[in-house]
């Protein structure tokens, strides 16, 4: 399974820089990053190559950080590629809470990262429908 770390950050200059600096100092690489912000604060989601290590680094710096399982799935980087996934999940009434993606091979392959309400069930369904799910190591191999 793939893991993501979510980090709380104030919407203030330097806060994101601090997080990426702490990770890079300890040689944790970031494969994908997404930031969503609300009223005065934000949550940064990071897909690192070493999730547990990244989590420990940030927590030991007293930064609110959460480590969780996510679904990383390969989709074709073509129009309608994303729809294939949402179509399947919707058929089983599984709500997508958050999603972000990154292209690994332009025009060919992309990785979609998903947070779904019922993660184990969603995994089974996606596998059953022929999708390839990635582990932390596999994500980084691309």
């Amino acid at each position: 399974m793939a893991h993501q770390i979510s980090v709380f950050a104030e919407n203030k200059p330097g806060r994101i820089e601090k997080i990426t600096r702490l990770l890079s100092e300890e040689k944790v690489n970031i494969r994908a990053i997404t930031i969503s912000s609300a009223n005065g604060f934000g949550v940064i989601k990071i897909l690192p190559d070493q999730p547990k290590k990244g989590y420990d680094i940030l927590r030991s710096n007293n930064i609110p950080t959460y480590l969780q399982e996510v679904i990383a799935v390969i989709i074709p980087d073509i129009p309608g590629g994303l729809h294939q996934i949402s179509f399947v999940l919707n058929k089983y009434n599984l709500n997508i809470e958050d999603a972000y993606g990154f292209v690994v091979e332009s025009g060919k392959k992309a990785v979609l990262v998903l947070q779904v309400e019922n993660q184990p069930q969603a995994q089974e369904i996606l596998k059953h429908n022929g999708f390839q799910l990635l582990s932390d190591e596999e994500i980084y191999r691309f």
């Binding site: 979510s6 934000g42 949550v43 989601k45 609110p64 959460y66």
Partner: peptide, 9 residues
Amino acid sequence: IPELFFGDL
């Protein structure tokens, strides 16, 4: 509080 943060905006 870090212990009660669940990554959820």
